[in-house]
């Protein structure tokens, strides 16, 4: 654990990601403080999802370091990173479609479970005991996101808004200390978004730090402690929501050169 800055949960330093000749992220440095909700915003192609993929081990960055609580994450597999407590969701809806909602969460509880293969094969009593606890836990998590009545339904039969909640439930099952949400409310209607914001508040109450990528500005400005704006792979602004909203660079990135000039 880094002793100099104990409040810095995740430190990204000089991160660069290139695809062939295309630069997705260029020497990006930022940190996530313990307990905060930090949002990454920026136009499409600004490098937000690429940064997410690098932090969680889905792509190998071309340069820079990523450290979580003083542990270097570069080169670790996604499953190892998850075991350190850094868990993500995906931009495109990603659940276990052929399973029931309850089983989806149960599959997500992999890290909460300790059974060893031989214990399973010999059906030791500890396994049965743990299975009971896991089922309890899965029910609790489903209830936490408000899907307690949907447990027995196949994921493929759930409406879109509930699928996105199920994704969050799966991620929560992995016991994150840092949760990375990739556009969790995209495609939701305003009332679904509003109830998602409430869930986010409850997640934060569990002492889970949140790194959010989102396009819905109302939500970003409503829930974030701090906002970082990216454009073309670089950080152009970093500050509290109010400051970001009035930042000229940000406005230019989103609305184009002409709009800022017109404002002058």
């Amino acid at each position: 654990m880094s002793t100099s800055q104990p409040d810095r949960e995740l430190v990204v330093d000089g991160l660069s990601i290139r695809f062939g000749g295309l630069t997705a992220v260029e020497s990006m440095s930022f940190h996530v403080a313990k307990g905060e909700i930090l949002s990454l915003i920026g136009p499409n192609g600004a490098g937000k999802t690429s940064a997410f993929n690098a932090i969680t081990g889905y792509i190998e960055p071309n340069g820079g370091t990523i450290a979580y609580r003083g542990i270097r994450l570069n080169g670790l597999k996604p499953s190892q990173i998850a075991a350190h407590g850094v868990v993500r969701t995906f931009q495109k809806t990603s659940v276990f479609m052929g399973q029931t909602a309850f089983d989806n969460v149960l599959l997500g509880l992999h890290l909460a479970s300790r059974q060893r293969p031989l214990a399973i094969i010999f059906a030791l009593p500890s396994v049965a005991r743990e299975e009971k606890e896991l089922a309890e836990e899965a029910r609790r998590i489903l209830a936490f996101v408000g899907l307690e009545a949907r447990g027995a339904l196949l994921a493929s039969s759930l409406p879109y808004g509930e699928l996105r909640l199920l994704e969050v439930a799966i991620a929560l099952a992995a016991k994150p200390r840092l949760l990375l949400l990739d556009e969790p409310v995209s495609g939701m209607n305003p009332s679904e978004t509003a109830s998602f914001m409430q869930i986010l508040a409850r997640i934060r109450a569990l002492d889970i730090t949140v790194l959010l990528v989102e396009h819905d500005m109302k939500m970003v400005m409503g829930v974030s402690d701090r906002v970082i704006c990216l454009n073309q792979g670089r950080i152009i602004a970093d500050g509290p929501p109010a400051a970001i909203q009035s930042d000229r660079e940000v406005i230019r990135a989103y609305l184009g050169e002409r709009y800022t000039r017109a404002q002058d």
């Binding site: 276990f96 890290l111 799966i170 991620a171 992995a174």
Partner: peptide, 10 residues
């Protein structure tokens, strides 16, 4: 069912 998601939960 979903290898990337499986990896993401450890």
């Amino acid at each position: 069912e979903n290898e990337p998601l499986a990896a993401s939960v450890g």
